[in-house]
Simulated assay, not measured.
Amino acid sequence: MWKQESIYFFLTFFNIDHNGEQSMKFKSILAAIGLFAAITTAYAETKIGYIYVGPKTDYGYNYAQDQGRLYMEKHVKDVKTSYFENIPENADVERVMERLAQSGYKVIFATSYGYLDPALKVAKKYPNVTFMHSGGFKLAKNLGTYFADIDDVMYLAGISAGASTKSGKLGFIAAHPIPQVLRNINAFTRGAQSVNPKVTTTVVWTGTWSDPAKEAEAANALIDSGVDVLSMHVDSPIAIVQTAEKRGVHVVGYHADASKFAPKGWLVGAAWNWGPMMTKIVESIEKGTWKSENIRGSLATGDVKLTKFGPSVTDKTKALIAKKEQAFVSGKDPLWAGPIVKQDGTVVAAEGTTMPSASVEQMNFFVKGVIGTVQ
């Protein structure tokens, strides 16, 4: 039986760049996909392709997606998966999806935010292939989306940051000011403020999902300004987590458990748990019950979760987090319940009210206490 890792042989054989640079040889990668598909046809009843914008070893976004792939393959019979790394959010991913569809893949997981429009375009050409996009809201007859409310978990993680900071200054390094990112920054800040009302969060934008050098530079600049707890929303937390550890400050992780990179400074992380959701999706496709929809998981469904705590998080803080987590799971205390106030003092949701879900999904502002601009 061929394993998923066989794809590495083909990518290496065809001399494909694994650095995520635009110089990747896509004629070679398309040839590799075709060859891999031909060889594995006899071994797999349902072929499923996963496309990642970065490496699956990033201990972040792509790592979490790949852990979901491995879980799903283990729990669903008669499927075979392959994955393709470092595929940019441009015409290149469209070509990869096109070749996968032509090569007999019945399900394609387009996992990055910028893959949605290319996936919609390819899906229209191949109605017998099911496409699943991570995080989007546009649908097609054969394209659905999947995501989860991880901002609940960022709020919980923010409690640990608010309880740990001595300077009252938190730092948040983020890629792009899209609603999902703004939700996490605001949730993190509100969680910290729930135990330390005077806390501020300074935001630095990198303008890219992955640039370790720029992320480390931003982390150092924030620490130099007095920040003593860092968090992030970039594809890989490694550079920021390692910088925090080196500089002796605390860090809250995102996407996955990267605690091994900061054995002293790690507080906790907000992590995805894609495996069970992906399993249900693939099983519904095989049973013929799948339908095009926006699937949204939560803490209650187990699709997002906290990582393990670091050594400096006190039992008192853990108890506060556990109590709030139960309130979220039970639905008694929604994350976006008022009062919610913008940076400029505008009230978004008064006390006793809750932001409508449509407004949350389109969030375009910072809450009071966040330092920075929504670019």
Score class of each variant (00 low, 15 high):
266 W>L: 04
63 Y>H: 11
291 K>T: 13
29 I>E: 07
370 V>F: 09
249 V>H: 00
297 G>T: 02
194 S>M: 06
1 M>S: 14
338 G>C: 08
224 D>G: 00
92 D>K: 14
194 S>Q: 04
339 P>F: 01
341 V>F: 04
187 A>Y: 04
283 E>Q: 15
272 W>Q: 00
278 M>V: 09
357 S>M: 13
35 L>V: 12
3 K>G: 11
245 E>Y: 04
184 N>Q: 14
62 N>G: 09
15 N>T: 09
262 A>P: 08
84 F>P: 00
201 T>M: 04
34 G>H: 11
69 R>S: 05
277 M>C: 05
224 D>A: 10
246 K>H: 08
271 A>H: 05
337 A>E: 14
305 K>N: 12
36 F>N: 13
31 A>V: 09
292 S>N: 02
86 N>W: 11
4 Q>V: 13
17 D>C: 10
287 K>V: 04
290 W>F: 13
92 D>Q: 14
98 E>L: 07
66 D>F: 08
19 N>Q: 13
306 L>I: 10
325 E>T: 07
77 K>V: 03
14 F>Y: 15
179 P>F: 03
1 M>E: 15
302 G>K: 06
350 A>R: 12
248 G>V: 12
258 A>H: 02
95 R>E: 12
314 T>E: 01
128 N>Y: 13
150 I>M: 12
121 K>H: 11
284 S>F: 03
320 L>N: 06
178 I>T: 09
15 N>E: 15
297 G>M: 04
268 V>R: 00
8 Y>N: 13
156 L>H: 04
251 V>S: 03
166 K>Y: 09
129 V>D: 00
327 A>Q: 15
45 E>H: 10
367 V>P: 02
297 G>V: 00
331 G>W: 11
5 E>Q: 13
23 S>A: 13
128 N>T: 14
256 A>S: 15
71 Y>L: 09
61 Y>M: 10
370 V>S: 08
372 G>V: 10
250 H>Q: 12
82 S>N: 13
288 G>N: 12
330 S>T: 14
280 K>Q: 14
346 T>H: 07
232 M>F: 07
112 S>E: 08
115 Y>C: 04
334 P>S: 10
154 M>P: 00
324 K>C: 11
20 G>Y: 05
83 Y>N: 07
370 V>K: 03
210 S>G: 10
247 R>Q: 10
358 A>P: 08
202 T>V: 07
2 W>C: 05
266 W>K: 01
218 A>S: 15
205 W>T: 07
129 V>H: 01
111 T>M: 09
216 A>W: 07
173 I>Q: 02
143 L>W: 09
30 L>A: 07
228 D>C: 03
4 Q>K: 13
208 T>D: 08
242 Q>W: 02
